[in-house]
Structures are given as structure tokens and as C-alpha cells.
Amino acid sequence: MRHCLALDLKDDPALIAEYEAYHRNIWPEVRAHLHAHGVTGMEIYRLGTRMVMLMETDDARYDAEAMAAATRNDPKIRAWEELMWKFQAPTPWTPNGEKWLEMSRIFEL
């Protein structure tokens, strides 16, 4: 299944460059965590400070709630998420305490 999520970055060119550098070489534990929870592919695109993530998942193994719980219980993944929050900012529509927000598809060809 394909998921499309959105998140913003802080409007600081140096922070954006650092964020992109981290994503050119994500931690191996992060890659393993994603694969372990049924994420089979992921791409992140940026326009200014807005980011869009396309995430492909294996429906038989992907469970967003289980993945979120595993993130909270894994110190290395929590450390990555806390580090990323240095660069990230919620969209105007993101509820408090959340990050990536699932987008609604409004058209398909």
C-alpha cells in the first residue's frame, strides 16, 4: 500500500542542509526498524520547507500503531526521532505531539 505524509522543516537553510545530509546516510538501525515493520520503500521530497513522504508498505506486516509503539520502546530509534525534531516543524494542520501527517488523496489517474 502507498501512504503519502506531510511535514514541514524549520525555515533555516543550514538546518535544512543538515537534515538532508542525515537522510543521505540514515542510521542502519532506522533502516532496519522500517523494514522490520513492513516498510518496503520510502521517498521524501521537499519544496521549500514542506516535505512529502511516499511510503510503500507490505499490508500483511505494516501496522502504524505497532510501529509507533516500537519507536517509543527503542532507545536508538527514539534518539533518531528526537534528533530529527531539531530540524522538523509541524504543519499548520498537525495536532500537538504528532509529526508526519497522512495526506488525503484527492485525485488518481
Rank of each mutant, 00 (worst) to 15 (best):
N25Q: 10
L9I: 04
K86Q: 07
I26H: 05
R2D: 09
R61S: 06
T49G: 11
E43S: 11
P13L: 00
A6K: 12
T57S: 10
T91E: 14
K76H: 00
W100D: 05
K10M: 06
R105K: 04
I106K: 07
E56G: 11
D11Y: 04
G38M: 13
D12C: 02
A79E: 13
D59S: 13
M51K: 14
Y62Q: 12
E56Q: 15
N25P: 03
E18P: 01
N96L: 05
A68N: 10
E20V: 00
P28I: 05
R24T: 12
E20T: 07
H35G: 07
D12K: 02
E18N: 03
M1N: 04
Y22G: 01
D11E: 11
R31E: 08
V52T: 11
E102C: 07
L5C: 10
K86H: 05
T94K: 01
D63V: 01
P95Q: 10
M1R: 14
A14Q: 01
M84P: 07
G97K: 00
E56M: 08
W85F: 05
A21E: 12
Q88A: 09
Y45P: 08
A36D: 11
P13D: 00
A32N: 03
T94P: 01
R2P: 12
M103V: 04
Y22C: 00
A60T: 05
P75H: 02
W85C: 04
A14H: 08
L47Y: 03
N73I: 02
S104P: 01
M42Y: 06
M55L: 15
W85Y: 06
H33V: 07
E29F: 00
E18W: 08
A66W: 10
L109R: 04
A69F: 06
G41A: 13
L9C: 09
L7Y: 15
M55E: 15
W93C: 09
A6I: 08
T49I: 13
E82Y: 12
